[in-house]
Design a protein around this nucleic acid. Structure first.
Lengths: 202, 202
DNA sequence: GATCGATGTATCGTCTCGATACATCGATCG
DNA sequence: CGATCGATGTATCGAGACGATACATCGATC
């Protein structure tokens, strides 16, 4: 998930970690924070995997445990997406299955880079997400019905609020889907990877 | 956080891990899941700390790394809260500061066991949580205003939804606070640790 | 008597987080 | 002029959370 987001941002322009974190926080709705303890290891992993490159020579070497802790002077490190990284990104962008929408965080990241996704794939993902959230809602409803008599007022209140949130998400998704459908109907604007003219694949 | 919840549940009756997990999922609003990978280590930690006890003799020994993997027969293990555990729980219940309401997850757990908290402390916590969430809301608003022109439609939509959720939470909290105040006004029902008659400590 | 799903305990590797350390730079202020 | 402060910037550490997985037992269904 983090990797997808990093690839998506570096797609636009090279950046260093600090900048990356700020953009990330902004793009991800300001809620999830992405600490450095996640970011830098992720960058190192991705560099080791060849998805990104740096301007410094000796990166990603996974220093042996006896290295002298590397304190002192550390310069800026600019990360650039490689050809492999772009390839990987466009591979990920093609996914439209549960792995994309079952997890809310991942779905959010995906949505933040939706402009790189074809119109029909967008619709599939949004609908998948809605199904997932609707199932969650059913689970919550059942749970609330089951525990209505047994539980604390506060616990009940907690569940009620959870249910309301999930309900709000369903409504939101439905709006997005409607908009998406309307636009697909009027005229499919050729996106970065435009949908092939096969309108029956839903 | 997990530890607080476990203590809270075991306060009611002894249980084994499986049962604990189910109750946890139910009480926590069905959203957060609590995997076994969190639960069992937590139970072991708590046993080692003397907060809970088991019916089995050789628990919490933190087996040395060369132990034979302990495969095969494993019986049920019933966990019971100890006197120390109860003490710890009642200590935690007295907290009303940011450590309780800054994190949403922790706040949720706290709310689920609100019946163990005195009325005035309940109010302090709810108001603290509302302040925190209101600040989050301001952050989101500022971010949205700042990026309104620059960003993607989908990204914007994501932020808008986030803002709506946060707004919903503020409204919900306000309702809870109103109810709490109304009841404090009419007649403070003596809870487990009833508030001393000092109505001016807000 | 086979199989299936619920009950039940437990570990593993991978990742994430919050806290922290350290360094540089520009601006502000006395 | 020097001090200090907050933003920028890179990085690690320990604690712990998670998903996947393994294994075992039991009752019901077929």
């Amino acid at each position: 998930m983090l990797e997808f987001a990093i690839l998506g941002l570096l797609q636009q322009s090279p950046m260093h970690g600090y900048e990356l974190r700020k953009q990330l926080a902004e793009v991800l709705g300001g809620l999830r924070s992405i600490s450095y303890g996640s970011l830098y290891p992720a960058l190192r992993r991705m560099h080791a995997a060849g998805l990104i490159s740096t301007d410094e020579p000796d990166r990603g070497a996974l220093l042996p445990a006896d290295a002298p802790a590397l304190t002192g002077r550390r310069g800026k490190v600019v990360y650039t997406i490689t050809a492999e990284g772009k390839e990987r990104f466009h591979e990920l962008v093609l996914q439209t299955g549960p792995e994309v929408y079952d997890d809310g965080g991942l779905f959010g990241v995906r949505l933040a880079f939706f402009r790189h996704t074809a119109a029909d794939a967008r619709l599939r993902i949004l609908e998948g997400r809605r199904r997932t959230v609707e199932q969650q809602r059913e689970g919550l409803r059942a749970s609330l019905a089951r525990t209505r008599e047994r539980l604390d007022r506060y616990t009940l209140e907690l569940q009620r609020h959870g249910l309301e949130s999930v309900d709000g998400e369903v409504r939101w998704l439905s709006e997005l889907i409607d908009t998406e459908r309307r636009e697909a109907g009027s005229g499919p604007p050729a996106g970065e990877q435009s949908a092939p003219p096969e309108p029956g694949t839903t």
